[in-house]
C-alpha cells in the first residue's frame, strides 16, 4: 500500500490506495499546481517594496513566502492571480498584468 500522496495517482490499483482515503502527511496539496489557473499575474518590484508585509496575510493561496520578516518572490506554482496583493500594497510595489503563457 502506498503511504505517501506522491505515490498515489489515478492509475493506482485499489490495493495501493490508503484505506478510507486517509492521508498520513501534511500539506500534500502543494503537489497541485494551481498556478495554471491564472489569467493575470502579480509582478513584485523588490525595489519599491518596503517589506511592510501587508500583502502576505491577504493571499488566499499562501503564495507570498515570508522568512524572518521579509517577503520573497511569489510562489507562482500556487498563485491563482486574484490580485488582492496588488490592491493592498500601499507602495505600488506589486503590479497586476495579463500573463503571457
Amino acid at each position: 500500500m502506498a503511504k505517501c500522496a506522491k505515490d498515489i495517482n489515478e492509475q493506482s490499483p485499489w490495493q495501493e490506495l490508503t484505506p478510507g482515503g486517509e492521508i498520513y502527511e501534511g500539506g500534500t496539496a502543494r503537489m497541485t499546481i494551481t498556478g495554471e489557473w491564472r489569467a493575470n499575474i502579480p509582478v513584485w518590484d523588490p525595489q519599491k517594496c518596503k517589506q511592510c508585509l501587508l500583502c502576505a496575510p491577504f493571499c488566499p493561496d499562501a503564495s507570498i513566502p515570508v522568512t524572518d520578516g521579509r517577503r520573497g518572490e511569489f510562489d507562482f506554482d500556487h498563485c491563482k492571480g486574484c490580485g488582492i496583493c496588488w490592491k493592498v500594497c500601499p507602495f505600488g510595489a506589486i503590479d497586476f498584468v495579463k500573463e503571457e503563457k
Binding site: G20, G21, E22, I23, Y24, E25, G26
Partner: peptide, 8 residues
C-alpha cells in the same frame, strides 16, 4: 508522529 487526514 505524523498527522492524519480523514474524510477526503
Amino acid at each position: 508522529e505524523t498527522p492524519l487526514a480523514v474524510g477526503p
